Amino acid sequence: MFGFNRVTKTAAVCAATAAAAATALLGAPSAVAAPQPIVGGTTTTTTAYPFMMQITDASQNQFCGGTLVAANKVVTAAHCMVGESTSSVRVVGGRTYLNGTNGTVSKVSKIWINPDYTDATNGDDVAVLTLSTSMSYTKASYVSSSDTGVYAAGTTARIVGWGTTSENGSSSNQLRTATVPTVSDSSCRSSYGSEYVASDMICAGFTSGGVDTCQGDSGGPLLIGGVLAGITSWGDGCAEAGKPGVYTRLTTFSSLVTTQINS
């Protein structure tokens, strides 16, 4: 079984990673996941989700998502930021289409990666970016450390992103969204065994598959009741039956995020 972080980079990087997947348990930050972007979902806009940010390289090629939680702070996945620097990353707000030129583009002045994150386990997968240019868009609220009840099995959650449309394929040009139910810890452990760490992670998806985040959606939000409750992290392929998406359990890291927002 291979668990893949849900990041997309350039086509050359993706192809090389796909070849390496046969021998690697966990992919590097550019690892290729199986097909479909938020399968079963619909197109949407950044007007509907104004806090949804594109995380791009310096040439504005999107490779991860992020959530605006303060005017100059974006929450994303730690694995999105491994190997990156403030000079290599940009954050784009208010841009529904990847090929658009509208919205606000900001450089990044600081990258905080949870110091406990390791790509060997995919746990502790949270990072916070400090923007050089403040964003005027509506911010998302996020869970507090005491909001653990939001993850009750079967709770409807919303996923948002620009994930790929096929294995090794291109990203969805327009932002997409879908709803998925949260999955119990016991069921997710049945799917992933010891790779699933309940204190760090939460699963969401249908038993039959068909709806999921995928490559390029990493770092984007898992919203419950309109509040940021998780971060798109990893999964075994995409939208496969019995293999729900795995998200960072944000209640565990809420206080760390708050510290970064206030720094």
Rank of each mutant, 00 (worst) to 15 (best):
D200E: 08
R176C: 04
I159C: 05
T156N: 12
G163L: 06
R176W: 09
T148S: 13
V183T: 03
I224S: 02
G225V: 13
I202S: 01
A204R: 01
G216K: 12
G154E: 01
G209W: 04
G205T: 07
C214V: 11
A153M: 00
G205N: 14
T213F: 01
S186C: 06
V211C: 05
V150Q: 06
Q174M: 08
V197Q: 15
S184I: 01
V150D: 03
A152P: 02
S170M: 03
L222P: 03
D200C: 13
S218T: 10
G219W: 03
T148V: 14
T165V: 15
D147E: 03
C214W: 06
S194I: 06
V180A: 08
A157E: 01
G219K: 02
A157N: 06
A178Q: 01
G210V: 02
G225K: 01
L222Q: 05
S218C: 12
C188M: 09
S166R: 11
A198W: 06
C214Q: 01
V197K: 15
Y192I: 05
W162R: 13
V211W: 05
W162E: 02
G220K: 07
T148C: 06
E195L: 12
G220C: 12
V160K: 04
V211H: 11
S186P: 07
S191Q: 09
